[in-house]
Every structure is written in structure tokens, then in C-alpha cells.
């Protein structure tokens, strides 16, 4: 309960940020940090709490983004109405991917590979089909109005992201305090033992991937509204999948705040490097990749693991 109170206080404290930070640059920084943190929260549910490392979370992200874009552009839906359907679509794709791979008992690297392959199949489909705009992509026309899920300033997007972050935290809080979550962590720590104790491993993993997929699809919906453009590479390419796994691994796998910590650290690193060396294509990703290797080599529990050692934070996982 104490952690829940601390998190609510933190979220409330973040509300006035747009009035305190007047520069668009830093508000954009905050929006992107929350956005990458949110993608990380989605990945963390399946990867951090469930121990199933997906390399293809773009499959759910892209489905959310494309569903919303196609509904808006081809069928004239209001973007707010499209949100619900887009998240359902993300959940359905997750159920298909998870249903197939967990039914056939794929674990570890095999699971990582099959998620990658599903994302790739969807990328090729989006690249080839007419109603997705094929290689050209889909562009949502700019009509800033709250009713269109487009905001004139950055603060509207900031509050949207804050709500999504709160949603992600609520889901993780539920996982840490429910039987479902206990079963999920048991599967992560020792799948065979969990099964022997009567945990329905298949259903637990399926539940985790569906929740993860729904959140990831919401991330895709947000991306579309923020940038108003989507194409097969952005939606289903490996960059999104990597972004989703990077934040929780850097911040702390299977911890409540890990993805947000990791996203903040990576965004800071990005800004610092850009101001130090200048923006060059690829350079920020070189740093991200190096950080990934270094974190795994030296801080396998991420930033949250260090914080725990230093100030004795409670452990959210039985690792």
C-alpha cells in the first residue's frame, strides 16, 4: 500500500509540469520519456514479470497504430472511438502470437525468434496491402482539436501520456498484488515447478501477453496521434521492439518503476550525446546498444537494482 501511495503522489506531482516547464523542448522531452517508459511498461509485464523475452513487440504496437489510422482514414472514425478498437486489435494479435507459441511450448530464444517473425510478417503485409497505404504509409491530416485527439500544444499530449503511464502502473500494481501476478512470477522463476504446483502455465502466459499487447497497441495509437504518420518500418520494424525492451532492462526488469527510470536515463543520454557530439543518424542507437551490453555485463538488475542496494528499497521480485 505504501508503494501505491508513493506512486500516486509522484503522478500528482507530475501534473503541474506543463505550467512549470514553459519550453516546448523540455515538454517534448517529458512526453517522449513517458512514451518510451510506457512501451517499456508494456514489455515489462511479459518480459520482466513473466520472463518471456519478446523481440517483436512491434507486432502489437503497429497493429494498434494501423488499426486506428485505417479506421480514421478509410472508415471515417473519430480517433477517440478508434482507441478502443485499436487496443482490442493489439490484444487479438497478442492472443494469436501467444496462443500459438505458448500452446506449442516455445520458450527462451525460440519465443524471441517467433515474435520477431510475426512482426516481420505483419511488416510485409502492411508494405504490400492497399488499405494500409503500402510503402507510402498513412498520414492523418492535422486538425488540432481535443475532439480529434490532437492538441494544439504539447501539454495535451503530456496529459494523455500521464494517464497512460498511470494505467501502466496500475496494471503492474495489480500484478504485484494479485494471484495472477504471483502465478506469473512463479512461471518466470521456475516454469516446471509452477506447473507442478498446479499453475496453468499456458493461461497465465497468455494473460500476460494479451495485457502487454493491449498496452503496446495503446502506445501505437499515441504515436500515431502525436506524429500523425505511420509506415510499415515505423510500425512493425525492429526499432520499436528494441525500444520497448531497452527501457525495462536499463531501468530494472520486473520492477514497477524500472521502465520509467530506464526511459528517463536513455532520453537524458540521448540529449546529452546530441548536444555533445551533434545529431548524426545512428549515433544515439550506437549509444543505446552499448548501454544495453554494459548494463547486462555490469548491472543485470538495472538502475532500480542499484537503487535497491544503496538505499534499501523493497524488492518487487523474487529473483
Amino acid at each position: 500500500m505504501k508503494s501505491a501511495a508513493a506512486i500516486i503522489v509522484l503522478l500528482l506531482a507530475l501534473i503541474p509540469l506543463p505550467w512549470l516547464v514553459r519550453s516546448d523542448f523540455w515538454l517534448n522531452f517529458a512526453v517522449l520519456t513517458l512514451y518510451y517508459g510506457f512501451l517499456g511498461q508494456s514489455w515489462n509485464i511479459l518480459g520482466g514479470y513473466g520472463g518471456q523475452y519478446s523481440f517483436g513487440h512491434a507486432a502489437f504496437f503497429g497493429t494498434g497504430a494501423y488499426t486506428s489510422a485505417v479506421l480514421q482514414l478509410q472508415l471515417g472514425f473519430n480517433p477517440w472511438l478508434a482507441v478502443g478498437l485499436a487496443s482490442v486489435a493489439g490484444g487479438v494479435v497478442a492472443a494469436i502470437v501467444g496462443g500459438l507459441s505458448f500452446r506449442y511450448g516455445l520458450r527462451g530464444s525460440y519465443f524471441a525468434l517467433i515474435t520477431l517473425a510475426f512482426a516481420e510478417v505483419l511488416r510485409i503485409l502492411a508494405d504490400s496491402l492497399g488499405f494500409t497505404g503500402a510503402g507510402v504509409g498513412l498520414q492523418v491530416p492535422l486538425h488540432p482539436a481535443v475532439v480529434n485527439f490532437q492538441f494544439a500544444g504539447k501539454s495535451g499530449f503530456y496529459f494523455t501520456m500521464l494517464v497512460l503511464t498511470a494505467l501502466g502502473l496500475a496494471v503492474v500494481w495489480y500484478i504485484e498484488h494479485s494471484r495472477f501476478g504471483a502465478r506469473l512470477m512463479a512461471v518466470r522463476d521456475n516454469e516446471d515447478a509452477a506447473q507442478a504446483l498446479g499453475v496453468n502455465v499456458y493461461r497465465v502466459k497468455l494473460g500476460a501477453i494479451v495485457v502487454s499487447g493491449i498496452l503496446m497497441a495503446l502506445g501505437g495509437v499515441f504515436y500515431l496521434q502525436y506524429f500523425l504518420y505511420i509506415d510499415p518500418e515505423i510500425a512493425y520494424g525492429p526499432a520499436v521492439s528494441i525500444a520497448a525492451l531497452l527501457a525495462p532492462i536499463v531501468g530494472g526488469l520486473g520492477t514497477m518503476c524500472g521502465p520509467l527510470l530506464g526511459a528517463a536515463a536513455l532520453q537524458l543520454l540521448n540529449e546529452v550525446s546530441e548536444s555533445a557530439i551533434g545529431a548524426a543518424p545512428g549515433l544515439n542507437l550506437v549509444l543505446y546498444g552499448a548501454v544495453l551490453v554494459l548494463i547486462i555485463a555490469f548491472l543485470p538488475e538495472g538502475i532500480a537494482g542499484v537503487a535497491r542496494l544503496r538505499i534499501g528499497l523493497p524488492r518487487g521480485r523474487a529473483a
Binding site: 523475452y53 524471441a112 528494441i242 525492451l245 532492462i249 545512428g282 542507437l285 546498444g289 544495453l292 551490453v293
Partner: peptide, 14 residues
């Protein structure tokens, strides 16, 4: 798995 993924990101973007 993650280390080799990280390496591929570094190499490609370099």
C-alpha cells in the same frame, strides 16, 4: 541473447 542484440545495434548504427 540481449548482448548479441546490443552488439548488432551498435555495429549497424556505427
Amino acid at each position: 541473447m540481449l548482448v548479441t542484440l546490443g552488439l548488432s545495434i551498435v555495429i549497424e548504427n556505427l
